[in-house]
């Protein structure tokens, strides 16, 4: 279901060759170094996964002295019937889709800009990637500061341009778009780096041939470049998709799900249920529904984007 590395042409042949020579007997000592890592992963992954799956079928509030009570599909049932759940699915999807699409578009545009060298491009590129290494907690606080209605520099700029002050994080219509723009600010550089590298990987003679044929730049882009970018785009989007679904720190530091319920994403609601209310059975069921959603979406997306030969 997930992202894959294409088989490396350089390695595929000799690997097979090695295997033939190696034979079965030498297989296991060769695999021995995997053991510590796999044991560690297994130990860390299996218990929490099973644990959360099991408790998702229990009615359990941490502070209930009576402890857990088996509830079957009780938690799933009330969740699926709860309009607030579907509301947060909607908010999350809007957030994820809008930010990923904008990031891809902007990142690709920037990559085309930097594709051919110009004086100072190395320096600008180095500065451009800075937002994505900033800790999300810092990002949230920084933007809260800059967007403040009273002393925020953004509102001052807007005022200087002759518009009225906007309560970006406090107004019901602005809050979600603002969060999306913050995400776009932080992660466009990520898309940009990937797209730039992908563009630079396109063999020059393909583009030159098209140019000699008299193709317009737009034609060249759509007919010759874009098809070759399919795989990097697929991987980059899938990675952003997965991470955007988990957005938590940013919301924690800015809107806390508000105003009203305009920025209540799935991960925020899970936090509320699990840590504010201690309904951990309910929160576990919530998490599993979210997990299913992410896995289904990522899979469908990759199925659409990737062809058979992309998967090793």
């Amino acid at each position: 279901m997930a992202v894959s590395t294409p088989p490396r042409p350089a390695a595929a042949g000799p690997t097979r060759f090695l295997k033939r020579r190696a034979g079965r007997r030498r297989q296991w000592p060769f695999l021995l170094p995997m053991l510590p890592g796999l044991l560690f992963l297994g130990a860390m992954a299996v218990y929490p996964t099973v644990y959360s799956l099991v408790i998702s079928f229990f009615r359990w509030n941490l502070n209930n002295p009576l402890g857990k009570q088996y509830g079957g599909f009780h938690n799933y049932d009330i969740l699926l019937k709860d309009p607030a759940f579907w509301h947060s699915v909607g908010v999350t999807l809007r957030y994820v889709v809008a930010s990923v699409v904008l990031e891809l578009g902007l990142g690709l545009g920037l990559a085309l800009l930097f594709f051919r060298s110009f004086p100072g491009d190395k320096l600008l590129r180095a500065l451009l990637i800075l937002p994505m290494v900033v800790a999300p907690v810092v990002v949230g606080l920084l933007w809260r500061y800059m967007l403040s209605v009273q002393f925020g520099v953004v509102n001052w700029l807007i005022g200087a341009l002759g518009f009225g002050r906007v309560d970006f994080l406090g107004s019901p219509s602005w809050a979600l778009p603002t969060l999306i723009l913050i995400d776009v600010w932080q992660w466009t550089p990520f898309m940009f780096l990937i797209m730039l590298a992908a563009l630079q990987g396109i063999p020059e003679d393909i583009l030159e041939a098209a140019r000699v044929d008299g193709a317009k730049p737009a034609r060249i882009f759509f007919d010759h470049m874009l098809p070759l970018l399919r795989y990097p785009i697929a991987v980059a989007v899938a990675l952003r998709l997965i991470d955007a679904f988990r957005v938590y720190d940013l919301i924690f530091m800015t809107t806390r799900g508000g105003p009203i319920d305009k920025t209540e994403t799935l991960s925020w609601q899970i936090y509320d249920a699990g840590f504010k209310s201690f309904d951990i059975g309910y929160a576990a069921a919530f998490s599993w529904l979210m997990l299913i959603l992410v896995v289904v979406l990522t899979t469908v997306f990759l199925r659409l984007m990737l062809r058979r030969e992309d998967l090793a």
């Binding site: 502070n63 019901p172 799900g257 508000g258 105003p259 009203i260 504010k276 209310s277 309904d279």
Partner: peptide, 22 residues
Amino acid sequence: FAGEERWETTVTTPLQAVSLGK
């Protein structure tokens, strides 16, 4: 009572809808 934190988390949202005139 033991569910107070959950109660606050629950009522804060509709209350804000009221104060915003929605």
